[in-house]
Design a binder for these strands. Structure first.
Lengths: 229, 229
DNA sequence: CGTTTAATTGAAAGCAGTCAAACTATGTGG
DNA sequence: CCACATAGTTTGACTGCTTTCAATTAAACG
């Protein structure tokens, strides 16, 4: 996700006090209901946002790849409305919340960049609603695979057509609004139909156009070549 | 949705050139795939955002009540990633896009307010994902009814426990990821169980706590008493 | 009033969920 | 290096919530 930033603003951002930290898979970065205190960026590894129903059902509402910021969503809100957790072991750059807030309120360029970043995340979440609400299991699963591939590629983290998907089928189910059992059956059926190949957690996409078509995937909502404007 | 704004910023916003316009129910304010050109605020009436699958299935991804801004989501993005349409006849304040953008980039306070506004909308969309992905038809429907009531009340537009829901069952289905037939059955069953009463499009909630419990509703995600901070 | 749109209802089919068990991979301690 | 523990994947049988298809009734509109 690229967001425009002037040289000035960029250096101001980079001069903020940050701490590097490595955390294990499954670490909580923000907990639903608690006040967020930091602002972290994923340097390596993967993360996700989730919400729970009172009955304990989980819904993953977004996935995050290296390079993405995890806490802008809570930066200016008093209480976190969702939980953020790492999917894998991850390296984080952690910045205290206040300096970021101060900077954002002093520099229009920073606030503007944050805004665009947030707008793009919002767009991705809207597509997520469409995916969960209106596509069947196969299209839904395919769509997630397409999006993940495209985002990885856009971030220069691998190919569209072959990548490591760092999620259990349980987690996939929680992201797709399906049960892990059904995710399993869907993946196997897709494999049997030659839509994908799997090797452990690696997903190989032999025919990108075919998967894209099954997924009803159009990456426009990712706003990848967003202008500075 | 209240967003903090200094007196200065407020007057700057209000001094932007705006046009008043009344549009019919079903009017398109933004079309998916087209470049947005204006920035409008709902003065009266209701609106919604929607996306379509290539097979023509519709998913409504948010609802909007009087007082809410409809185009911030596209203000800084080149191409709209979803469609915005009115649910009812509506009065709009329409501001050309560029002055808003200029203002947002000149005044940190404005950009900051836009950011908070967007963050709250994003939070609501995340809850929408949870609702569609992990709740059954009854809880899902109840949840929408709770949210709508609370938002209306917060905006001083009526009571939590009785209000006009300006949607057909078809639209409700599209918002909930259900068919209109099943929405109908669900509403009738809820009515039969005393969870709600209906009179035309009016929803009456005799026991708010009960509905809230069925809906698994906790309004925290609405961030209604967000601090200025 | 006739026409159109929306709400309602019934019957049947289907996609996904539930429950339970087996299997595989990975990791640990002895 | 093996036995065992644990987490994750895979399968089968069965259930059930929601959809689909079709038809009817009610409401809204000019």
């Amino acid at each position: 996700m690229k967001v425009p930033l002037s040289a000035d603003d960029r250096s101001a951002l980079l001069s903020l006090p940050s701490t590097l930290r490595t955390v294990e898979a499954g670490s909580y970065l923000v907990r639903d209901g608690e006040p967020p205190t930091t602002c972290s960026v994923l340097l390596s590894g993967f993360a996700f946002r989730q919400k729970l129903t009172s009955e304990g059902m989980r819904q993953i509402v977004s996935l995050h790849i290296p390079g993405e910021a995890l806490d802008f969503q809570n930066l200016f809100l008093d209480v976190a409305d969702h939980t953020v957790q790492t999917l894998t072991r991850a390296d984080l750059a952690i910045i205290p919340r206040d300096p970021v807030r101060t900077l954002a309120r002093a520099r229009p360029g920073i606030a503007h960049a944050l805004l665009i970043y947030t707008l793009i995340e919002a767009s991705i979440t809207r597509e997520w609603v469409l995916n969960v609400g209106r596509r069947d299991a196969r299209a839904r699963t395919s769509h997630l695979l397409c999006e993940f591939g495209v985002r990885l590629q856009a971030a220069n983290l691998g190919g569209e057509s072959s990548y490591e998907l760092p999620m259990t089928q349980e987690q996939l189910g929680d992201a797709l609004g399906l049960t892990s059992v059904h995710v399993n059956r869907t993946l196997r059926a897709m494999e049997a139909d030659g839509l994908i190949t799997r090797d452990k957690r690696r997903i190989i996409i032999p025919d990108w156009k075919k998967l894209r078509s099954v997924a009803d995937f159009n990456g426009r909502y990712l706003h990848l070549e967003q202008q500075t404007s």
